[in-house]
């Protein structure tokens, strides 16, 4: 997944961005290609510019210099902004602030209604989208009666009902409890796997980034590191120097190794970590793993 095909779906070309003159540049000369069907996690701590990138990807913000191309369309061109937004959907952090209508199914219908899709077609898309995120049973509920994870899934359904090909999620789980977080992450992963929807996940949870095909690490408005999760998280010291964490499993393996245990590889998940620790233990005791 790390190497993108000849024509990427989204291209950031030498992108610079500043909100206004005084506050200075937020993003410096970013180059990034995202292929269709890819699952990219964008990592970095607060204020590194990752949320700004999210808004640049669907033309909510326009680059100060450089270009953002979505499916070959320049996001800076006013006339084609709707074409950009129907290709790249945005899901924001606060689950309460992005649902428009007082009934779940009407909220999901909001996007296609704006695009002028015929009524029966909207009905079909809304039902499909709600089924895809597992919220079909709640189609007639009021959003404020749902849990945070459910609201975020409705927000995702609202985006896929526009038949968008890419979803940008800006810290979608930051305000959720662990269960809601798992619901959202499972939904995102399934949409990527089963429907081939391109996912750009902006997060500061390392354990979520592990599930992506490619991880892009940002710091102070620049791309610091890029590659498959295992390659990126293998560089524990480098990440720590930039005040970034690694997944818990990787951290544990790193500390055990520092304490003199012979742990091989870079475990990313709990399972992998358990296996690595067991292998190390077995080797020490001379038992077959």
């Amino acid at each position: 997944m790390a190497d993108a095909p000849a024509t990427p779906f989204i291209t950031l070309n030498d992108l610079c961005f500043s909100y206004d003159e005084e506050s200075g540049e937020v993003l410096h000369n970013i180059h990034l290609d995202i292929a269709a069907g890819e699952f990219v996690a964008l990592l970095g701590h607060n204020g590194c510019g990752k949320s700004t990138v999210a808004k640049l990807l669907n033309g909510m913000l326009i680059p100060t210099s450089g270009k953002v191309l979505v499916d070959g369309i320049d996001t800076a061109v006013e006339e084609t902004q709707l074409d950009v937004r129907r290709r790249v959907g945005l899901v924001q952090q606060n689950p309460d602030n992005q649902l428009v209508a007082g009934i779940v199914e009407e909220d999901v219908a909001f996007g296609p209604e704006n695009l002028g899709v015929p009524s029966e077609e909207i009905r079909r898309r809304v039902d499909d989208a709600l089924k895809a995120v597992g919220m079909y049973a709640y189609r007639e509920h009021a959003p404020h009666k749902l849990s945070g994870g459910q609201k975020q899934r409705v927000a995702i359904a609202g985006v896929i009902a526009m038949e968008t090909r890419c979803i940008v999620l800006d810290e979608p789980t930051a305000m959720l409890d662990p269960r809601g977080r798992a619901e959202v992450m499972d939904t995102v992963e399934r949409l990527n796997r089963e429907q081939g929807i391109t996912i750009v996940l902006i997060t500061h949870y390392m354990d979520e980034a592990v599930r992506a095909g490619r991880v892009v690490v940002m710091d102070q408005g620049k791309i610091l590191l890029e590659g498959a999760p295992r390659e990126v998280f293998a560089q524990v010291e480098f990440l720590k120097r930039h005040h970034l964490d690694v997944p818990q499993a990787t951290e544990l393996a790193y500390r055990l190794r520092a304490a003199g245990c012979d742990i091989s590889g870079t475990p990313l998940t709990e399972d992998e970590c358990v296996r690595a620790v067991y292998a190390c233990y077995a080797a020490q005791k001379g038992v077959g793993a």
């Binding site: 992005q98 219908a109 909001f110 704006n114 015929p118 009524s119 909207i122």
Partner: peptide
């Protein structure tokens, strides 16, 4: 936030809007 969400979902006023 809501304005961003609405614009992201292609809201551009009542013109050309259909209803489910």
């Amino acid at each position: 936030d809501l304005a961003t969400a609405m614009e992201s979902r292609c809201y551009h006023g009542g013109a050309g809007r259909t209803r489910m």
